[in-house]
Design a protein around this nucleic acid. Structure first.
Lengths: 191, 191
DNA sequence: ATTTTCATGTAAGTCGTTACATGATTCT
DNA sequence: AGAATCATGTAACGACTTACATGAAAAT
């Protein structure tokens, strides 16, 4: 396969607790799990069809009190099995972490390259924003639900925050370090 | 496009300093830049063809003293322009960091779930290995080349190490925390 | 009255992986 | 002599994105 195809597993996971429509699943990617995974609705509907054909979910179409026809998907025994199997499976290697910014930096050779400061600042803004957003999420999420009964979610939010703290710290340190270098260079030229 | 298509930029970047064959470029992904990006050789040759058609690189086929016919690719003015333009461009949002393990954890609800410890341990091993590897890389790389003249590379290796330090630390902390919880539970049951 | 949200899909195209394929050269 | 490396591609397929498409309901 071209990618690791984790979407069906995510969908099964989201359907474990209760049946949902494709639209509701899509909504989960705008909020909840959207913090950790992204996908387009077109792909969701496609994958739901495939999972239905595989017998891992059942599709139930009807009105359900509403005026609009909806299709609810509910997980089957086979779906639960597949999900459980995946959830307790071990990885034997890590995927490469693809980060456009890191790539850009790789090609910056000279320490006194003028673009360096600009790039670091831009990235710092983005990651600081992300960090603040994640801290807010942590507050919001666990004010309504219990930490110990959503422990995985708690752990990964915790990790995401620490990751962004490290990222911003690194960017900030790098910025300071290159400007100290500049100061030093300036003095060397002036003195 | 399906993905952000950064491969052509990487290839242009790798060709800035000197002309290279497709095979040499492929080799770079096994070592150097392979730490930060992965790609298959089939895709490299395809992208080289495309870049040639775009006039961003030139293909020169010949024997060059060797007994085997090779094709060297050299960057053109247009290629340099495209690369420079990308390298100093700003991002306006961050891509979602897709991590299978994080996904798995998201679906662990119960703090005392037995699988939690196993999964954390497995992941700890992988990230510790990665961390040790990166520290070695740092030593190896900058024993032969100069830090200040490969500053981007230095920065991102530095960052990668810090990232893995954070990752292993988080996993270790989480492991400790859940086993303390277990101990506490045990005592509660026993006392 | 108009925009936004709900709700669900199809079609085209691209990036990337996996597998297939070949032939020379160098190392053991 | 055989294995590994050098060197370069093609073909099939899958995952994902972008764009196209539609219609009702709810909100402003």
């Amino acid at each position: 396969m071209a990618q690791k195809n984790l979407l069906p597993l995510i969908l099964l996971g989201l359907l474990r607790d209760s049946k949902k429509t494709g639209y509701e699943l899509k909504k989960d990617f705008d909020t909840e799990i959207g913090e950790f995974w992204s996908v387009k609705h077109s792909q969701i509907y496609l994958e739901l069809k495939r999972l239905t054909e595989l017998g891992e979910i059942n599709a139930v179409t009807g009105f359900f009190g509403s005026k609009v026809e909806k299709t609810y998907y509910e997980i089957t025994k086979f779906g639960k099995e597949r999900f459980s199997k995946w959830q307790c499976s071990f990885q034997n290697e890590l995927a490469v972490n693809k980060d456009e910014f890191v790539l850009k930096l790789y090609f910056i050779k000279d320490k006194s390259d003028e673009r360096l400061g600009q790039l670091l600042k831009n990235q710092y803004e983005l990651h600081l924003e992300k960090l603040l957003h994640l801290r807010q999420r942590m507050k919001d999420v666990f004010s309504t639900i219990d930490k110990d009964n959503n422990y995985g979610h708690y752990l990964i939010l915790n990790h995401a925050i620490k990751r962004e703290e490290e990222y911003t710290q690194w960017l900030d340190d790098s910025l300071k370090y290159i400007s100290v270098g500049e100061e030093k260079n300036k003095r060397e030229y002036i003195d």
